[in-house]
Structure formats: C-alpha cells, structure tokens
C-alpha cells in the first residue's frame, strides 16, 4: 500500500509536469493554430541552460532560461511560423519538426549527448516522510509550484483584460480582430507564455528523474497523448490528461517492470483507446464545420 501511495504521488508530480508541457502546446495552438512540435525541444533546452548555470546559482539559471526561452519562442513565431499562417497542416508540423531537429543538433553541439547533472537546485534530494510513505521533496515542490502556476494562468485568463483578449482571439480570430484586439500582440504573448511554461517543465523534468539528457525530447513528447486524452484546448483537459499520463507512466514502470519498457507506450495505448471511444478527447467537444 505504501508503495502504491508513493508511486501515485510520483505519478502526480510527473503528471503536473506533463500538464505544464501540454499547456505550452495548447497556448500556442489556440492563439496561432500552430501545433508546435518544437515545444519538447524548448523544454530540453531550458533544462540544459538551468543545469549549466546551477553552479552559479539556481535562481540565476532559471532567470536566464526564462528570458532565453521566451525570446526564442517569440523569435521562432515572428521569423518562421507567422509566415506559414493558413498553410496546410503538414507544413506547420514539418516546420516545427525541422526546428526541433535543429534545436537537438544545436544542443548536441553545445553540450554533447551524454546526460548532464540534474536541475533540482534548492529543491534538494531529501524525502518528506508522511507515515510510512517517503515523498521526495522535488515531487512536493513540483506539485506546489505547478498548482500555483496553473492558478495564476487561470486567473490571468478569467480575470484580466489580457486574458480575455487571448480567449477571444482563440475563440474566433476575425471577431477578435473586429473588436480591435491586436492579433500580433496576442500571438507574441502566447508564445512568450509557452516559453515560460517550457522553462518550468524543463526544470521539473530535469530534477525529477534527476537527469538532463537528449532523451528529454521523447519524454516531453509524452504530453501529446496527455493532450489527446484530455482533449485539446481546455485547461482542465490538459491537467486531467497530464495526470493520467503521469500516473500511467509511473505505475506502469512500478508494476509492469517485467514487460520491458512497456510503461513508455502505455500513454499512447491509452490515447488510442480514448480516440476510438471519444474521438475529440474526454473534455473536448466536437465542432461542426462549414463547407
């Protein structure tokens, strides 16, 4: 039982990370219609930046990473993806995959392919004991900070003019333009927020399995089944999807160890199941389309 509780806790922590990554995808997708396959690379790059700067101070690392990633995301949007607006699906997918390939190559040039140290910094390696259950402090930090971030995002979207503008823009592009909402500005803001979310996810993903490595791209890609399970486009969906994927991964690796790396494919299998039963995800809604 203790083991189960412990794994569940870790699964929830990992689920929070997936929720953050998934929100990074959703932010960009809602505002500019781009499904950013380079987002996992953003996550990896921020983890590398923080890991490289940890000796000089964790706070500095996070600060530098925040500035760099927000800037990188905005630059990608302004220079490349804005020019691809309105083109076919494969164009946007391939452009972001091309960016992803480039990003991975640049990281390999700068830091090599060997795993680097972790990004846990002040989160520490200790455990918090509650009864017989040992909860790693990193997990506690991840869940707390993620919940705070989610709450801040929620308040931003629901209670501020800017959040309202972003929601309006996501809802109906042209109607938002007619209301005088500056779409360029909306897209810049959303890509910037996605960059910030990538840093949070990168720090947590680098601290939780305690390893910063090129594999993080594949790990972060696990947010895709999370999004599909939850349904694109709702905050609740991203959180529920992220949690399910985190739990599947951790419980799968805990209890199904004799089947090799089966836990890695469990989220994808779950996603396929959800897609056969509810093609637009658990929280998504089917949209009628005009021909």
């Amino acid at each position: 039982m203790d083991n189960f509780l412990q794994l569940t806790f870790q699964g929830m922590a990992l689920g929070c990370v997936y929720a953050l990554i998934g929100l990074g995808f959703v932010m960009v997708f809602k505002s500019s219609g781009v499904f950013n396959f380079a987002h996992p690379v953003f996550v990896m790059i921020s983890a590398y930046i923080v890991a490289a700067l940890v000796p000089h101070g964790f706070g500095w690392g996070v600060l530098v990473a925040l500035v760099c990633m927000a800037a990188l995301a905005i630059v990608c949007e302004k220079i490349i993806l804005r020019r691809l607006a309105g083109r076919s699906l494969y164009v946007v997918i391939m452009a972001t995959l091309g960016l992803s390939v480039m990003g991975q190559a640049v990281v390999a040039m700068a830091w090599g392919v060997n795993p680097r140290g972790s990004t846990e910094g002040p989160m520490g390696r200790g455990v918090l004991r509650v009864g017989g259950v040992a909860l790693p402090w990193t997990g506690v930090w991840i869940i707390t900070v993620s919940l705070v971030l989610l709450a801040v995002l929620y308040l931003f979207f629901q209670r501020t003019r800017y959040g309202l503008a972003l929601r309006a823009a996501a809802d109906h592009h042209e109607a938002a333009l007619a209301q005088g909402i500056n779409m360029r500005w909306v897209q810049t803001i959303s890509w910037g927020i996605a960059g910030v979310l990538a840093v949070a996810a990168g720090v947590f993903l680098g601290a939780f399995p305690r390893r910063v490595s090129p594999d993080m791209v594949d790990t972060a890609l696990g947010a895709l089944p999370a999004l599909v399970i939850g349904g694109f486009g709702s905050l609740a969906g991203a959180v529920v999807g992220g949690m399910s994927v985190g739990l599947l991964l951790v419980l799968g690796s805990g209890y199904l160890a004799e089947y090799g790396g089966v836990h890695v494919v469990l989220p994808y299998v779950a996603m396929l199941l959800v897609l056969t039963l509810r093609p637009s995800g658990l929280f998504g809604h089917h949209e009628a389309e005009r021909i």
Binding site: S100, M102, A105, A108
Partner: peptide, 24 residues
C-alpha cells in the same frame, strides 16, 4: 559524446534548416 561541432550533428542541423527554409 561530449559536444562540439561534428559531421553528423552539423548534417542534422543543416537538414532541419533546409526543411524550414524550403517551407518558408
């Protein structure tokens, strides 16, 4: 493994760049 500009990595970088450049 330790980083630096090597042929395979540079080749990857170039073809990623080629894809993006062609699309744009």
């Amino acid at each position: 493994a330790g980083g630096g500009v090597s042929v395979d990595v540079l080749a990857n970088c170039l073809y990623g760049l080629a894809v993006v450049a062609v699309l744009v």
